[in-house]
């Protein structure tokens, strides 16, 4: 008896346990919220130290990126992410991890085509499409004199 892909797809879905949604959601919320609260703490600290709004915001990004890259190097970030899921993916720390992890991984293929080139395998599209979206927005602003 030959089974159709549709039939088998249904069978396979039934046999495949779903992700533990409730636990994953809670962990993502707690860890993601925690990272953001940490960022807010730094923001308030930098402002208290006299930084203006823009400088403080940039400082927060750079600080969190530094910490995420450090934790990636120390082999900690991936173990956090296993539990935190989107909680460590969505904050800017996830972006930093996506740059640092291939840099470490592909150093074995050399500094140019390994480390240097592969750094962008995950972060590349984020930069490409983010920039493209911003250019489209700029074009609209300029064409329609919205500034």
């Amino acid at each position: 008896m030959k089974m159709t892909p549709e039939e088998y797809g249904r069978l396979a879905q039934k046999a495949s346990p779903p992700s533990p949604m409730g636990k994953n959601l809670l962990m993502a919320f707690l860890c993601g919220g925690g990272i953001c609260a940490l960022g807010e703490g730094f923001r308030l600290l930098y402002q208290w130290l006299g930084a203006d709004e823009e400088l403080a915001a940039a400082g927060v990004s750079v600080t969190l990126i530094f910490l995420a890259v450090l934790l990636t190097g120390l082999n900690v970030y991936d173990n956090l992410a296993k539990h935190a899921g989107a909680g460590t993916l969505v904050p800017i720390t996830g972006f930093a991890n996506s740059v640092a992890s291939p840099a470490l991984e592909f150093k074995s293929e050399g500094f140019i085509l390994g480390l240097g080139a592969k750094m962008f395998i995950i972060a590349g599209p984020v930069i490409v499409y983010g920039t493209a979206a911003s250019i489209l927005y700029g074009l609209v602003l300029w064409l329609f004199r919205l500034y």
Binding site: P17, P20, T72, N75, Y77, D78, A81, L89, A100, S101
Partner: peptide, 17 residues
């Protein structure tokens, strides 16, 4: 992992399957 999926230190989550 590095050939088929992600770098070792990348923070991904594996589904139960």
């Amino acid at each position: 992992e590095r050939q088929f999926r992600y770098p070792l230190e990348y923070g991904g989550q594996r589904p139960p399957t």
